[in-house]
């Protein structure tokens, strides 16, 4: 069994991370997207810029950091990355325990984000996502199981 979707794979999931504040968390998310080969360096600055303009906090302890429309030119391929912060980070509007970082050049990630929004509307599933202790749990919550079932 390969634990991956088109846009999210086990190697893009970091559990048990720590960051002192929101800016450091954004930096880590951006760095991960760079390391995965999904974006070029300037995309990280655009993620900070976007976060300052409008928060990407979406509720239930989750934020979805991403760049700006102008920074799409630095996206090499559509990729999602998950970074979990068990201790929580003050995100202004709430405390964030999980970041789903987004680099998108197309629409390939829409299914995973739709799965995420369904998970967040279900308190138990949202808690399971925030406290996941292995990548397989994250992937199964974000739709990997359904995709495998179709395959």
């Amino acid at each position: 069994m390969t634990l991956s979707t088109d846009t999210l794979s086990a190697e893009a999931i970091r559990l048990g991370a720590t960051a002192k504040d929101r800016a450091e968390a954004i930096e880590q998310c951006g760095r991960l997207l760079v390391d995965l080969g999904a974006v070029e360096e300037p995309y990280v600055a655009a993620m900070h810029e976007r976060e300052k303009a409008v928060s990407t906090f979406v509720g239930e302890g989750v934020a979805i950091p991403h760049g700006t429309n102008e920074a799409r030119q630095y996206v090499k391929r559509t990729q999602l990355a998950v970074v979990q912060y068990p201790d929580g980070i003050d995100w202004g509007a709430g405390t964030v325990h999980l970041c789903v970082a987004i680099a998108a050049s197309g629409e390939e990630h829409v299914e995973v984000l739709a799965a995420l929004s369904k998970v967040l509307m279900d308190e138990q599933k949202a808690a399971a996502l925030r406290t996941a202790t292995d990548a397989a749990t994250v992937l199964s919550l974000l739709g990997n199981d359904q995709q495998e079932a179709h395959a």
Binding site: R50, T56, V58, H66, T68, A71, R72, I102, A104, S117
Partner: peptide, 15 residues
């Protein structure tokens, strides 16, 4: 609508 059309708006449109 969102700034980049790649994150926030995608999630909400799905819901």
């Amino acid at each position: 609508a969102c700034d980049a059309g790649m994150g926030s708006s995608v999630m909400l449109a799905g819901q």
